[in-house]
């Protein structure tokens, strides 16, 4: 349910951010995330940044497998 797009924040202006996914850029709503700064990575869904991404999936995967 919900294709998510990981993307880098390029710029922010009044609740709207320009995000960049591999060179594909679009403006999305960024007002649901506090303290967002250019350079941060966000998960985008239907034109809204819904979460900040705080690491890559390899670091995460290694941590997850570490608990078992």
């Amino acid at each position: 349910m919900c294709v998510g797009l990981p993307a880098r924040v390029v710029s922010i202006n009044e609740g709207t951010a320009i995000i960049d996914a591999n060179g594909a850029k679009r403006s999305v709503a960024s007002q649901l995330i506090d303290d967002l700064e250019p350079g941060d990575y966000v998960m985008v869904h239907a034109g809204v940044a819904i979460a900040k991404i705080n690491s890559d999936d390899e670091t995460e995967g290694n941590e997850i497998l570490g608990i078992i």
Binding site: M43, D56, T59, E60, G61, E63, I64, L65, I67, I68
Partner: peptide, 28 residues
């Protein structure tokens, strides 16, 4: 990476035979 590790965790936890909850997607 995420789907495979989450499935692996599920299998390992099921082996323990008690209710569990694990957040396998903490980066988001």
């Amino acid at each position: 990476n995420e789907l495979m590790s989450a499935l692996a965790v599920t299998i390992e936890m099921l082996k323990k035979n008690e209710p569990f909850f694990v957040n396998c997607y903490p980066r988001v």
